[in-house]
């Protein structure tokens, strides 16, 4: 199946403003460096990583809220440039992290959902737009009585579903979700995950889910990418990458996920986390030389400090490591 969404060499660097009057070298943040992946229609790609790895920047660039420094984003073979027309803007929709903040607190949900239809001219008149909205609301598992409320009157889970509904109303081809479950209670998480699974089954959207919750990623994703300090370190089927990763970093991440064990009671200890201390993610302003992970890597050697590892295919995954496992 040819890819619907094709990202090649996506790079985004930010130049920080220099302190006034001081002649220093410009400081550049390498938020995203040479990221490439593909997502097919009907497929879910999970992008996993810790804070500071550049996942949200990737999401924003995909959705047209930010412009890449270099690299391309192509949809169904057609490249989407930095300045997008409204029609192109619809095609990739981003669902942001906090559903409550995603709506104008002084507008009803009905207005919020009607607005994108009206702006893009989808739906001939008021009545037709109302019908489309009602249909979508029901599809996400809510009723139209929720529509005449203000955001403040609804729960987080309801709002999460309505954000999704709003994004879907403009008929995107790609849906990018940034931490869709991070701000939700456990029980609500489950409903959202189910909704996303249904979406995957019913539509042919390419879905990119950005998350730091590995277990959610495992449930949702067909394929997964792991990012570290702006680069993709491992990319492949979710069953491989999220269960038996080759790169030391995702191994570290997985080892640190506590597995619920009803047999064990009592305080946790460092030994339970295995693989030694995790450490901190270094600053993106001044990344380590060579492989960015080498200061924290148990398998690091000299070559890791000197040369950045290139991406290689190993079985069914791509890995960027000098010593993949």
């Amino acid at each position: 199946m040819s890819a619907l969404l094709d990202v090649r060499g996506l790079t985004r660097r930010f130049t920080l403003p220099r302190p006034f009057g001081r002649r220093t070298a410009p400081r550049v943040v390498h938020a995203v460096e040479d990221v490439s992946f593909e997502v097919a229609a009907g497929e879910v790609l999970a992008v996993v990583g810790e804070s500071g790895c550049g996942k949200t920047t990737v999401a924003r660039v995909l959705a047209g809220l930010d412009t890449a420094t270099s690299g391309t984003v192509a949809l169904a073979g057609r490249e989407l440039t930095g300045g997008r027309t409204p029609a192109d803007q619809r095609l990739i929709q981003l669902v942001t992290q906090n559903p409550r903040a995603a709506f104008n607190r002084r507008r009803t949900l009905r207005h919020a959902l009607d607005q994108p239809l009206r702006v893009h001219g989808l739906g001939a008149g008021r009545a037709e737009r109302d019908a489309l909205v009602a249909e979508m609301v029901e599809r996400v598992g809510l009723s139209t009585e929720h529509l005449d409320r203000l955001p403040g009157e609804l729960s987080g889970g309801e709002l999460a579903r309505l954000v999704l509904a709003r994004a879907l109303l403009v008929r995107p081809r790609v849906l990018v979700l940034d931490e869709p479950t991070a701000s939700l209670d456990a029980s609500v998480k489950a409903t959202v995950v189910d909704l996303l699974l249904r979406l995957r089954a019913e539509s042919d959207l390419a879905i990119v889910v950005i998350t730091h919750e590995i277990d959610i990623a495992r449930r949702l994703a067909d394929r997964a990418a792991v990012m570290y300090l702006g680069r993709v370190v491992e990319l492949g089927p979710a069953a491989s990458v999220l269960a038996r990763p080759r790169h030391p970093y995702p191994r570290l991440l997985l080892a640190s996920v506590p597995v619920p064990d009803p047999e064990r009671i009592g305080p946790a200890s460092a030994a339970d986390f295995g693989a030694g201390a995790i450490g901190e993610v270094p600053s993106a302003l001044d990344p380590p030389s060579g492989c960015a992970f080498h200061p924290r890597c148990a398998l690091a050697t000299e070559v890791c400090a000197e040369r950045r590892p290139a991406r290689e295919v190993l079985d069914d995954v791509e890995v960027a490591c000098h010593h993949p496992g």
């Binding site: 920080l16 500071g52 903040a101 993106a284």
Partner: peptide, 18 residues
């Protein structure tokens, strides 16, 4: 919850560039 910006501003704090 106090809405926290989940999308960074164009000149981000170097610590938070997700």
């Amino acid at each position: 919850r106090r809405p926290s910006p989940s999308v960074p501003t164009p000149t981000p704090n170097p610590k938070e560039t997700q």
